[in-house]
Design a protein around this nucleic acid. Structure first.
Lengths: 233, 233
DNA sequence: CGCCGATTTGAAATTGGTCAAACGGCGTGG
DNA sequence: CCACGCCGTTTGACCAATTTCAAATCGGCG
């Protein structure tokens, strides 16, 4: 697979970049393909590169000493990841692990290169900053959710968010289909796969969703919204 | 109270600013004094200004529809806050509420002004981006903590963090004294004031801390670290 | 000294987690 | 093409952690 400078325009942070800059970025990058289940990088690795997902899908997780992990976000094509470690001063390490959910390919950009580029190109630093602020907002919202809402509401919210993200891609004729295992949903919401399974079964009985192996189809988004708002029970 | 450009050097994001820039910033700012308990801004307000705390202390909280609130961070002098809403494009709103914990004064900088300034001065956008990355890292870590650790560990971690922050300021002869109510600690850790009270009583019996009305004195930080790591029990 | 808000503590109620066992869909190899 | 086995899922029973509610107590401040 070859990537042209034009492709990079799909990356939010590079939308305003000139063609020369995009060329320069490509020259300082390498293409890395990762098989399903393998890792782009692991939490604690030295952050030499930041990545742009070109194809496939990946997830960003963080683990505690115990090995328990939480899912921080799902990564879709043309999104940047690994930027946290890569933009810190000096030699920093990744605070999270990035794992491919399907066979994927990515563009690995040298951290030092991007950092030097930002020093002289305000728009990159500015746009990257805006991207960071949106992540903070999302993390703060999820943090509040985890602290104040019950499992039911958090899982409903997670499905709503996921449906919103992939709904752009899929036609929602017969509902919006999501490809996540119970375990993955549990890691997104800070609960266990057992509790997720129970909730999904319950909601299927009520006709709000349909379930399958590693698959959840949202039939009545409105039903989820009600649960998320705590109007149930 | 008057603020000189030199004072602004204490602000992380302005460390590299020229004297003219600092002057310019001051010219586009206003000084606002807020009494203990009052608000700099509330969640949902239009984000016309971003703030720098000049004196006093404040806290940043987020509430759900229900009114339950979580404490996102405590703000000390020369720290910036309200920057999230203020740096977004167009007319954005604050995602959180900022309340004075003591009589405080702050510098309110026009969002539009700072935004235009960043477009031409890479170092401000860059440094602000670095500040944002550090917040993301902290939020991610706290999120993981909330999702995977038990209350005991989270409260111990919160005290360690707080001691680390204010410990710089206080001499730790007879322990590090923290001025937070049980309620406030509960809001920082996603639990209830009752559970916090029980834990603190328990730790006081063990000699790890001393407690008082709206006061917690850390005697043996090491004891807290052990609890935070889950070595207890 | 009296009042008010913060704190403590007990007891009961709940939520959600843990563990074990059985089930079921699906791809693979015979 | 079908049986086997794997892995994700479901479900029940039990249990632990934490919340909820109520009531008593404490500590300062005016």
């Amino acid at each position: 697979m070859t990537i042209s400078p034009k492709d990079l325009k799909q990356v939010v942070v590079f939308q305003r970049a000139t063609d020369e800059d995009l060329d320069l970025i490509l020259k300082n990058s390498i293409l890395r393909s990762i098989e399903e289940g393998s890792f782009f990088f692991m939490q604690g690795d030295e952050a030499k590169y930041l990545y742009i997902l070109v194809s496939g899908q990946a997830k960003l997780t963080q683990s505690n000493i115990n090995g328990q992990q939480v899912n921080l976000r799902t990564i879709y094509p043309w999104q940047m990841f690994g930027a946290l470690g890569a933009t810190r001063d000096g030699s920093a390490t990744y605070p999270a692990t990035a794992q491919a959910l399907e066979n994927s390919s990515s563009l690995a950009i040298q951290s030092t290169f991007l950092r030097s580029m930002m020093e002289t190109r305000p728009y990159i630093a500015f746009d990257l900053m805006q991207l960071m602020t949106s992540y903070i907002q999302e993390m703060q919202a999820r943090y509040r959710e985890l602290a104040t809402e019950r499992v039911e509401q958090r899982v409903a919210n997670a499905l709503i968010r996921l449906a919103g993200q992939s709904g752009i891609r899929s036609n929602k004729e017969a509902g919006i289909e999501l490809s996540f295992s119970r375990q993955e949903v549990a890691e997104m919401t800070g609960t266990t796969l057992y509790t997720v399974s129970r909730l999904l079964s319950d909601w299927e009985r009520k006709g709000i969703i349909k379930t399958g192996r590693e698959k959840i189809t949202v039939i009545q988004p409105h039903g989820l919204v009600q649960i998320a708002e705590g109007l149930e029970k």
